[in-house]
Simulated scan of single mutants.
Amino acid sequence: MAELGPRAGSPAVHRAARVLSELAAHDEALSVSELSRRLGLPKSSLADLVGVLVHEGMLARDLDARVRLGGRIRLIARGLVGGSPLLEVFARACAEVRELEGRTLVLAVLLDLDAAYLAVRPGARPLPLTLRPGVRLPAWSTGTGRALLSALPHDAVERMHSGWVPESPSGHPFRLRELLDSTALARARGYASNAELGEMALAGTAAVVQGLRGCVAAVGSIVALDEPGRADGDTDAEAVRTLARRLAELIEA
């Protein structure tokens, strides 16, 4: 894999970051040989680096010697959700809300102007876009992102989007007034939706997960626009709000 230009700092740190990013982008464990091929790094030096990351708990090694993200990554990720055990209880809460059975469910936080996905519960039906932990999408064009923005003051959202704004993956034009209207509506009704945009042929419905200090994340369902039984953007609204409340209960318990 070609480098994008000179970078400051330790080359080993950059290589470690690339290893972690590559594993975060895939659900399956990978061998050192596969990582070497994907990253364009020498297998011998990569094996030494992987060994250090395993020792530090950043990676875990399976019985067949393949590696995946380790338990320490989850502890670090707690910093993104206010130090709460939100990632640990996400799967449990999803399973408890039976109305969302078969739906793709996501947990996201706001990073700059993006919704960054920390956890994904795949649904029964494949989506046009494969969502994995680590994926970032423009907050203004996604249901989870709009929910996260709705937790901020109106003027803060306006200031954040007064300059450069990330482009929609589907080419939808950004309109500040439409974003402000959508976040105001989300505050009023307790959930957000991007169904009218049809971003990447998907519709997302999301609600804020409240912690002791306010919003810690947003949880949402994502469905294909042509999914059978999807009546409109509000189809999963009450169930998603129930899921957000359940997550709040679990992290405060």
Score class of each variant (00 low, 15 high):
Ile76His: 11
Glu96Asn: 03
Arg98Glu: 14
Arg74Tyr: 09
Arg98Asn: 10
Gly83Asp: 02
Gly82Phe: 01
Ala91Leu: 15
Pro85Met: 02
Ser84Val: 07
Leu87Gly: 01
Ala91Gly: 15
Val89Cys: 13
Ala77Thr: 08
Arg78Val: 04
Val81Phe: 04
Cys94Asn: 03
Pro85Phe: 00
Arg92Asn: 14
Val81His: 05
Ala93Asn: 08
Glu88Trp: 05
Cys94Tyr: 00
Arg72Phe: 10
Arg92Thr: 14
Arg72Asn: 06
Pro85Gln: 00
Leu80Pro: 08
Ser84Pro: 02
Leu86Cys: 12
Leu87His: 01
Gly70Ala: 10
Pro85Leu: 00
Ile76Tyr: 09
Gly82Ile: 01
Gly79Trp: 03
Ala93Met: 12
Leu86Gly: 12
Val97Pro: 06
Pro85Glu: 01
Ser84Asp: 04
Val81Arg: 02
Glu88Met: 05
Phe90Gln: 02
Ile73Met: 11
Ala95Tyr: 14
Ser84Phe: 05
Arg98Met: 13
Arg72Ala: 06
Arg92Met: 14
Leu80Phe: 08
Ala95Cys: 13
Val81Leu: 06
Arg72Ser: 04
Gly79Tyr: 03
Ser84Cys: 05
Gly79Leu: 07
Ser84Glu: 06
Arg98Ile: 15
Ile73Val: 11
Ala93Lys: 06
Ala77Gln: 12
Val97Glu: 11
Val89Ser: 12
Pro85Cys: 01
Arg74Val: 15
Gly71Asn: 10
Ala95Asn: 13
Glu99Met: 06
Phe90Asn: 00
Val81Ser: 04
Phe90Tyr: 07
Leu86Val: 14
Pro85Thr: 01
Arg74Gly: 13
Glu88Arg: 11
Ala77His: 07
Ile73Glu: 08
Ala95Phe: 14
Phe90Lys: 02
Val81Ala: 05
Gly83Leu: 04
Glu96Gln: 09
Leu75Asn: 06
Phe90Asp: 00
Ser84Met: 04
Phe90Glu: 00
Arg72Asp: 04
Arg74Thr: 15
Arg72Cys: 03
Ser84Trp: 04
Gly82Ser: 02
Ala93Arg: 05
Gly70Trp: 07
Cys94Asp: 07
Gly79Cys: 05
Ala93Val: 12
Pro85His: 02
Arg74Phe: 10
Glu88Phe: 09
Ala91Asp: 15
Phe90Cys: 04
Ile73Arg: 12
Glu96Leu: 06
Ala95Asp: 15
Ala93Tyr: 05
Glu99His: 11
Val97Ala: 08
Glu88Ala: 14
Gly71Val: 07
Ala77Phe: 10
Ser84Thr: 12
Glu96Arg: 04
Leu80Gly: 09
Arg98Asp: 13
Arg78Asp: 02
Arg78Asn: 05
Val81Lys: 03
Gly82Lys: 02
Ala77Pro: 03
Glu96Ser: 07
Glu99Pro: 09
Glu99Ala: 12
Leu75Gln: 08
Leu87Tyr: 00
Ala77Trp: 02
Leu75Phe: 07
Leu80Asn: 10
Gly79Val: 06
Leu80Thr: 12
Arg72Glu: 07
Arg74Glu: 15
Phe90Arg: 00
Ala95Trp: 14
Val89Glu: 14
Glu96Met: 07
Val89Trp: 05
Arg92Asp: 15
Ala91Arg: 15
Cys94His: 03
Val81Thr: 12
Ser84Lys: 05
Leu75Glu: 09
Gly79Phe: 03
Ala95Ser: 14
Leu87Phe: 01
Gly70Thr: 08
Arg78Tyr: 04
Ala77Ser: 08
Gly70Cys: 09
Val97Leu: 09
Ala95His: 14
Arg72Trp: 11
Arg74Leu: 13
Val97Gly: 07
Val89Thr: 13
Ala93Ser: 13
Gly71Tyr: 07
